[in-house]
Each structure stands twice: as structure tokens, then as C-alpha cells.
Design a protein around this nucleic acid. Structure first.
Length: 948
DNA sequence: GGATCTTTTCTTTTT
DNA sequence: GAAAAGATCC
């Protein structure tokens, strides 16, 4: 941090108080220092007081820090600033609604009111449950929307959409969309065509097909389109690029019905929330925005003479607009750094800062369309920058900029020059530069990191600057390990505690997904009602095989030691006591177990939960992966482990950036939702519900949306910024660490990667893992693919989503596969029971998972139709194909017919002497239906029509 | 260089 | 199940 006196750039900004400013304040440039001084400078003017200056931050912590520091720099004291508007957008909105929001909903055509008792829902688990309840009612009231719900995979997706629209300032009113909301939903054809054209540019100077054409190779392969969908060759064209007219053809369609559906759900939910007397965080801003738009007097009363927004790169569209409505003059100052924008998934919009002028103008014009709401001129915008960095050495700063041009994949092409040009270079304040920037890769990444930490501590080659400015050797507390994912951090933490290294994890952790929590859950279930699901896990943990466990469960003859332990647990009075006893017995100590214990204890103290309710609480916590804050608590001199996101704004002498692995960071792949809202294509749906197809309702895929989403650019910019944020946390040294397969980032950074074989002899692992119960039956080896964790996961799964949920289809499939292969199977619901009954009823040989690819020749071209057979049942003269289906409405029946026909011909080829048949088993009602396979000629025709 | 096939992934967290 | 990277074939 900078010294007491501001540097010239800082001083310049502190004194430039009048007018519009966009400040590019890079990492470690003393931003908070400057902003607080600027604030102090403003409030010291005649006639200006704290009430005239709005200072917005993004977290309550940051607001508090600002407030404290302003007290130090200004003539105002703690008390005078206590009520000063130094706030987050959310708390500001909350206050505005508290005081003036009673009738705000009427502006959206809602009769309900906002009152002082309206709660804010903070827990999204709770909100999701409420939303499900709302949807239940909604479906009853509005049966005409049944088809839309049939084409959706879940309600959460719909709630996510509502959250996203709220953040982007698109909301419904009584009979349409508030202000210009609808234009956002319609998308922007022109912008889309630009995007399309860009992606459709042939590559390599015209000799290679465009990226878009390459992407559309899979057009139609993962779904069924209605017959009027264009064929693949029509979409892809026969040259190097996709025919340009495809853009408009895919873009233009009538989405009145879809928009109507989303409108009614959104509007209905707003009413529901208000009737239930709650708002979510997004709705706070939504109503505050509406109120400020509609109530001119209120707006004029609330307007501030000076507005400063910190961390502007984290703002969303609606927050930008709120800023404009709250500013009474053009004394607006937005401070931020686009390079540190890493909250896109929370709808932070990096273009708010990157294209500030343009957005400012556009938003102001939108707001002023029918009345003057933004009363000040939106230009000129003066730019300021802070370029002196008080945190890192010059070599770390130089290195960090390479992160922004690092390739995310081997083949990614980047305009490195353009990126470099947009970066404001930072200059280190210190002349000293002894930084070590190194990279290591090791098969045992955890151990390699721990070994490196051990080597760094006390080594003066990694000297760090002490408070007195003198170099000193590093301690554990100087080191932070940053990772992309929580999982990695948690695992590293566990490994570290095994070796007795002082490591503390800071941030949210999915405590209930840890093995410790699962063990506790198992014992609670045993206590409650000797539940098999509990015993199964406990037996497995003790080393019993699946068959043994099953036998024990069947007879209810549990090992004596375990029964005795159960009785000893029964005597304990508190949940915390039970947890402690369980963890003691299993030797689970360390931070993760502590958090489970603390959470359980606090649940006991703050609620009147019964044991059954506690079990359900833990089950719910596991199901939605809810996180709990882990308290550092491992003493002061410990290595900090954090996710990169959690580390924002912090700094450490030595940063180890871990988990630079190809399969983790950046993440590629991933699915897409059924309803898509994205710039510039607007609101689309991926699946279409059709009534008429076969006399039975069916769901079809929408070819237009498939084409449109293929055109949306896939960018790894935010991943690069994440890398940048991590590196710029470091004051003195940076170590990048990877496992056996380093990612492309690491390969394209200018650093040598050292292969490491960690020497762990220096570590003394704590006590060998002991089994708390002796195994009193002989233990045969499990099947080759047996994994101890599958048992645990399976046991938890059922509690998970009530035995169903998103993994439902996969679970049944997996069950069958394992059952047929004689692999461990514990969890069994109705669907699985159906499948088991079917398999049991078959004699002869059964095989699972036979890949089936049927090569056909269509119009002289070879096409391959692929699939996976769920079960192949062989008897001496027959080969029967069985396919499990869990949901009757997902696909058109002819799709199943086609699939099974492929299997049929493949199996026929493999088993020429057997009579081949194919059938579908609907697991939901146990019904079995024989399919009459299409001939190869018929398949050929089908391929010709669907072309996919 | 394009088509086809195989493998691997589906995060992050604040209000 | 869907998307995208990477490997392999031609």
C-alpha cells in the first residue's frame, strides 16, 4: 500500500472531483487509499457533507473498510459517518424500499406491497424451494402453459433465468415488459449478424473452413428436429463458410408464445414473493430501479451530488443504471480494472467498464426516452489511471500481463497484440526485485506443493520484505495457495493435515460433502432407525465387501463392536457430542471435521431440530452443495488456501497458484439450458413442445436455437483474468504448480516448468489410518473396478434428491451396468428394483454397455449412427436388446425406434446365429415394449430426411 | 485440411 | 445429455 502522501496520479484523482471520470486502477495501485482520500476531499468542501456523497462498494466488508479509513483521513468522526451512504447497491436498494417502497410494485401492475416486514431471502436453497412451490401453483392455475414446462428440464433453470433478467434490467409489468425490456428479449439481429460473420470467416487466409462451419458439423446429431428443419448440408453449405443467409433464417422466428410464458412466470413469481412477504437480492434492485424511474420527486430527493463506484468491473447492467438514476450531477466517478473482472457468472458485465462511454450514453438515452431522468451531460468522460503498484516487484507485474494473453487451449488463436495494447502497464514502486517466478509439475501435485512450501519456509532465496522494510526469511504465514476450485483446496488441506503442515482454508466449503460429514450422517441414520443406508456406509468404511455388507443387512446381524458404539452414541445428549464421538472413533480430526462439528453444534443450539430433522438438514445440504464458511482458525502462522475468487483484493508475499491442470482450468465442455437468454440473440428455447406429432405429446429440439447458440462466441477471457488476479496477489514470489498434465496456460507462460518428484522423507505422516472396527469375516478382494468412494456416494445419493433428481437417468443406467457386471450396488429405488427384476428374470448371459456404431451408405456417403446399448441378453438361440427409459415424454417414439434399430442391426452382425429382438423398458411403470426394428433401408431414408 | 471418432468436461460466490 | 478439445483417419 502506498505511503501517507499520495503520488501525483493519486493526487490528481483526489483533486479531480467535478465531472465524469473513469478510473483505470490496476491491482495494488492504492485504490482504496485514493478513493477514501478523494471522498475526504469532497466532503471537506463548503456546503458538502457526507449525505451528499454516495460511495458504492460491492461487499459489506469493503464498505466497512472504506468507512473506517475515511474516518482516519477526514474531519468527520465515526458517529458522523455512521449513517453516511457508503454502501453496497443491495443495502442501498434495501433502504430505499424500506422507506419509500411500499407501492413500488404497483408500477409493475402488482397489487401487493413492500412493507417493513418484507424479508430478504439470502439462502438460495430456501428460494429454490419457494420457487418450486410457486411453479406448482402456477401450473395448476395456468394449464395452458403445461407444454412449456414439459419442455423444461427443471424449475431451477427458470429461476436462474429470472435472476439473470433481473440483473440485466429486464422485467415484466402488467401486460408487457417494463420500458424497453422487450427489445432485449428480441435480441439484436444486426449485432448477431456481425458476430455470425466474424465466426464464419474462413481461416488460414481462406484455405480452411470457418470456425462456425466446423462447429455445425454436429448439427442435428444430438436431437430430433421437426420435419421442417433445414438439412445439415443446407445449414453448412458446401464451401469454406456457412451460407450467410443462415444467420437471418435462424434468427427470425415468432417467439411471442415463449416471451408470454416467461413474462407470466416472472410476473407471477414477483406477486408470489410479495404475498409471501419476501424479496431476493435481485428483486431489491429491481424494485429500487422501478421506483427511481417512476417517482420523479423521490428521485430528486434522493439524488447525490457526488457518486463514486468502486470495483466497477463487478457491476451489472442494472447497477450501472441505478448509478445514473442516483446521480444528480455529472460528478460521477467509476473506479475499476477490467483485468480483474471475474464475476461474470454473477452477471457482472465487464463491458460496463470496457465500453463505459458507449454504455453510459446508451443507458442515459434509454432512461431519458420519455422523461428527463439523467439530468447531466454524459460527455466528456475524463480518463484517469493509477499505474504505480505498491504491492509487487516489476518482474511479477511484467509476468502477470502474460496471463492475459496466455492460450487456454493448445490451438486457441488470440489477438495478443490487441490485448497487450489495451493493458495499462503498471510500474513497481520498489526497485528491489529478487522475485522467483517458477513452475513445477508433478505426478503427486499435493505432495509436491507441500514439499515446496517446506523448502520455501526458512530459505533466504525466497526472502520477503518485513514490516520494517528489511528482508527476512519466509514463514508459513507468508504463503498463500490459490486454486480455481474449492475441491482442490479442500483436498490439499486434507493432505496437509495428514503431514502435519500448518494450513488453513479460508472461504466457503461444501462441508457436508466431505467423508467426515457422510460418516456422521450414516451414524445419525443408524441411531434414528437402523437405516440400511447408514449401516452400508459404516460397514464399507470398516472394510466389509459389498456381498458381506449385503448379507449383514439382510439378516440385521451387525457386528457387536458397532452395536456397542451405537449404544454409546445413544447416551449422548447433543448432536455436537455425537459428532465428536464419531470423529474421535474414526480419527477424523482437522479443520474440515471441525467445521462439520461446529455447524452441527450450532444447528443444535439455534434450532429445536429433532434428529430426524437434522438428518434431513444434512441431506438437503449435501443435495444442493450448500457451502459453509470455514474459519481460518489454524493459528496465525499457517499457509492460507483459498479459491482465486475469494482472494480478490488481498495480497501475500508468496503465491502458489495450484491446480494448473489441463482437465481443470480452464474448464471446457459443459451443457446448455433449455431456455437461453443471451446477448445478442435474446430469449430462445432449445426445445419445442409439439402436440400433434404422434397423437402423444413429444418434445423436439429447436434447430434455430441450436444454430444461434453455436454462433455465440466461446471465450476464455475471464479465465485469463482469473489467472491474472491470482498472479497479481503476489508481492515477492510466484510458484505455479501442476499435476501430471499441465494446462495450456502454463505451457504458454514464459516460465520453465520443472518436473518434480517430491521427497517426502522430511515429512512424518501422522498415525497410519486405522480402521475403528475389526473385521471379523474373511475379506475377499473386491472386483477390479471397486472404488471405496462409490459406496459412500451411492449411500448418500438416495438422500440426495429424494432418490431422483438430475442424475436419475444416469443412476438407473449405472445401476444396471453395475448389476450386470457384478459390481457393487447398494442404492436401490423403485426404478432400480424394476431393472433388477427384469435382469433377474433373464437367464443366460447378460452384457452391459456394448458400443454400437452402424455404418450406412446414404446417397453414396457413409454415415454412422452411434449409441450405447443398456443391456444385451444372450441365450443359446436369442440375443435381446433392452433399453431403459425413465421419461416417456422426452423424445419422440420414432427416435427410440431408430436407436433400437441401430442396435438391432449391429447385434445381428455380431450374433448371426441368434434371433435378435429389441425392447424398451419404461422404468417408471415397469412396462416393457417390444420394438419392431426398422430395416437398414428405412434407416437410410430416415437419415436422408433428418440428415443427422 | 476436413471428416470422423474419442475423450473429457459440466467452476467460481456476494448481496 | 451437450459441448468442445484432441486424436486419428483419409
Amino acid at each position: 500500500m502506498s505511503g501517507v502522501e499520495p503520488n501525483p496520479e493519486q493526487r490528481d484523482l483526489i483533486e479531480a472531483t467535478e465531472g465524469l471520470y473513469l478510473v483505470d486502477a490496476g491491482a495494488g495501485t492504492g485504490k482504496t487509499f485514493t478513493v477514501t482520500h478523494r471522498y475526504a476531499n469532497v466532503v471537506e468542501r463548503d456546503g458538502i457533507g457526507p449525505d451528499d456523497v454516495l460511495l458504492v462498494t460491492f461487499t459489506n466488508n469493503a464498505a466497512e473498510e472504506m468507512r473506517e479509513r475515511i474516518v482516519r483521513h477526514s474531519e468527520y468522526g465515526v458517529r458522523e459517518l455512521a449513517d453516511a451512504p457508503i454502501r453496497t447497491f443491495h443495502s442501498l436498494s434495501h433502504d430505499i424500499l424500506d422507506e419509500h417502497g411500499h407501492d413500488a410494485p404497483t408500477f409493475l401492475g402488482l397489487d401487493e406491497t413492500i412493507t417493513g416486514s418484507t424479508r430478504i431471502i439470502e439462502d438460495d436453497v430456501v428460494e429454490r424451494a419457494l420457487f418450486r412451490e410457486f411453479v406448482g401453483q402456477f401450473v395448476d392455475d395456468r394449464p395452458e402453459y403445461e407444454p412449456f414446462f414439459a419442455a423444461l428440464s427443471g424449475t431451477t433453470e427458470l429461476l436462474d433465468l429470472i435472476t439473470e433478467l433481473s440483473a440485466k434490467g429486464v422485467f415484466p409489468d402488467a401486460d408487457g415488459w417494463y420500458r424497453d425490456g422487450e427489445s432485449h428479449l428480441d435480441g439484436d439481429l444486426e449485432a448477431f449478424e456481425t458476430l455470425f460473420a466474424e465466426l464464419n470467416e474462413p481461416r488460414n487466409g481462406g484455405s480452411r473452413q470457418s470456425r462456425l462451419r466446423r462447429k455445425l458439423y454436429r448439427y442435428g446429431e444430438n436431437g430430433t428436429y421437426l420435419p421442417e428443419a433445414p438439412e445439415k448440408r443446407e445449414i453448412r453449405g458446401d464451401g469454406k463458410r456457412v451460407p450467410p443467409e443462415v444467420a437471418e433464417r435462424a434468427f427470425e422466428d415468432d417467439r411471442t408464445a415463449l416471451k408470454g410464458f416467461v413474462h407470466d412466470v416472472f410476473h407471477g413469481y414477483l406477486g408470489f414473493a410479495l404475498r409471501r412477504n419476501y424479496l431476493n437480492f435481485g428483486f431489491l434492485q429491481l424494485f429500487a430501479f422501478v421506483l427511481l424511474c417512476e417517482d420523479r420527486d423521490l428521485r430528486e430527493r434522493l439524488e447525490y451530488e457526488y457518486v463514486m463506484v468502486d470495483e466497477f468491473q463487478d457491476s451489472s447492467a442494472i447497477q450501472f443504471k441505478l448509478t445514473l438514476l442516483l446521480a444528480g450531477t455529472n460528478n460521477v466517478c467509476a473506479v475499476g480494472d477490467w483485468k480483474q473482472s471475474i464475476y461474470g457468472f454473477q452477471y457482472a458485465d465487464v463491458d460496463n467498464i470496457r465500453e463505459f462511454d458507449e454504455r453510459l450514453e446508451r443507458f442515459a438515452a434509454e432512461l431519458n426516452r420519455d422523461a428527463e431522468r439523467v439530468t447531466f451531460p454524459t460527455s466528456p468522460v475524463e480518463r484517469k489511471r493509477l499505474t504505480r503498484n505498491y504491492r509487487s516487484t516489476q518482474s511479477i507485474l511484467d509476468f502477470s500481463t502474460h496471463a492475459l494473453t496466455a492460450r487456454a487451449t493448445k490451438r486457441e488463436s488470440l489477438d495478443a497484440e490487441a490485448i497487450t495494447e489495451s493493458i495499462t502497464p503498471l510500474t513497481a514502486d520498489t526497485d528491489r526485485d529478487h522475485s522467483r517466478i517458477e513452475a513445477l509439475a508433478s505426478e503427486d501435485e499435493h505432495e509436491a506443493i507441500l514439499a515446496r512450501i517446506d523448502a520455501i519456509v526458512g530459505d533466504d532465496a525466497y526472502a520477503v520484505e518485513g514490516d520494517d522494510g528489511e528482508y527476512r526469511v519466509p514463514e508459513y504465514g507468508d504463503i498463500a495457495v490459490l486454486t480455481r476450485t474449492r475441491d482442490f483446496g479442500r483436498d490439499l488441506l486434507d493432505t496437509a493435515s495428514e503431514y502435519g503442515l500448518p494450513v488453513a482454508y479460508e472461504g466457503g466449503i461444501e462441508v457436508f460433502r466431505t467423508d467426515a460429514a457422510k460418516l456422521l450422517l450414516a451414524w445419525l441414520r443408524i441411531l434414528e432407525r437402523d437405516a440400511d443406508r447408514g449401516w452400508a456406509l459404516v460397514l464399507e468404511e470398516a472394510g466389509y465387501t459389498v456381498d458381506e455388507a449385503r448379507a449383514i443387512l439382510d439378516r440385521g446381524a451387525y457386528p457387536e463392536a458397532m452395536v456397542a458404539f451405537r449404544e454409546s452414541l445413544r447416551e449422548l445428549e447433543t448432536f455436537g457430542g455425537v459428532a465428536r464421538r464419531v470423529f474421535d472413533r474414526y480419527g477424523r480430526e482437522g479443520p474440515t471435521a471441525d467445521v462439520v462439528l461446529e455447524t452441527v453444534q450450532s444447528v443444535h443450539e439455534t434450532t429445536t431440530f429433532t434428529r430426524g430433522e437434522l438428518i434431513r438438514f444434512i441431506e438437503a445440504a449435501i443435495a444442493d452443495g450448500s457451502t459453509h464458511e470455514v474459519d481460518a482458525g489454524a493459528g496465525t502462522n499457517a499457509v492460507t488456501v483459498q479459491t482465486i475468487h475469494a482472494t480478490k483484493g488481498l495480497e501475500y508475499p508468496i503465491v502458489i497458484l495450484a491446480n494448473m491442470n489441463a482437465d481443470r482450468f480452464p474448464s471446457t465442455g459443459g451443457g446448455a439450458s433449455d431456455v437461453v437468454y443471451a446477448d445478442p440473440i435474446g430469449l430462445r428455447r432449445r426445445t419445442v413442445y409439439s402436440e400433434e406429432a404422434h397423437g402423444v405429446p413429444h418434445v423436439y429440439d429447436d434447430w434455430r436455437t441450436d444454430v444461434l447458440t453455436a454462433c455465440l462466441p466461446r471465450s476464455y477471457d475471464e479465465e485469463r483474468r482469473l489467472l491474472y488476479v491470482a498472479i497479481t496477489r503476489a508481492e515477492s514470489h510466484v510458484v505455479l504448480a501442476a499435476g501430471a498434465d499441465p494446462n495450456a496456460f502454463l505451457e504458454s507462460l514464459p516460465v520453465d516448468v520443472e518436473s518434480v518428484d517430491p521427497d517426502l522423507s522430511a515429512f512424518r505422516p501422522e498415525d497410519e489410518e486405522r480402521s475403528p472396527f475389526t473385521v471379523d469375516v474373511p475379506v475377499p478382494d473386491g472386483p477390479a473396478s471397486y472404488s471405496p468412494h462409490t459406496f459412500i456416494d451411492d449411500a448418500v445419493f438416495e438422500g440426495d434428491v429424494g432418490g431422483r433428481g438430475m442424475e436419475f437417468g444416469t443412476a438407473v443406467h449405472e445401476f444396471a451396468e453395475r448389476y450386470v457386471r457384478d459390481e457393487p450396488v447398494v442404492h436401490e429405488g423403485d426404478d432400480e428394483a424394476n431393472v433388477r427384476a427384469l435382469i433377474d428374470s433373464l437367464d443366460g448371459e447378460k452384457r452391459a454397455e456394448v458400443d454400437a456404431f452402424l455404418p450406412l451408405t446414404v446417397d453414396g456417403e457413409r454415415v454412422t449412427i452411434g449409441g450405447v446399448i443398456d443391456l444385451l441378453h444372450l441365450t443359446p438361440d436369442r440375443a435381446e436388446i433392452v433399453d431403459y427409459k425413465t421419461d416417456l415424454t422426452r423424445h419422440a417414439e420414432d427416435e427410440y425406434e431408430k436407436q433400437l434399430s441401430v442396435y438391432y442391426h449391429v447385434v445381428e452382425g455380431v450374433h448371426p446365429d441368434r434371433e435378435v429382438s429389441a425392447s424398451i423398458l419404461y422404468t417408471r411403470d415397469g412396462e416393457r415394449r417390444e420394438i419392431d426394428p426398422l430395416s437398414e433401408a428405412e434407416l437410410r431414408d430416415l437419415v436422408r430426411t433428418h440428415r443427422g
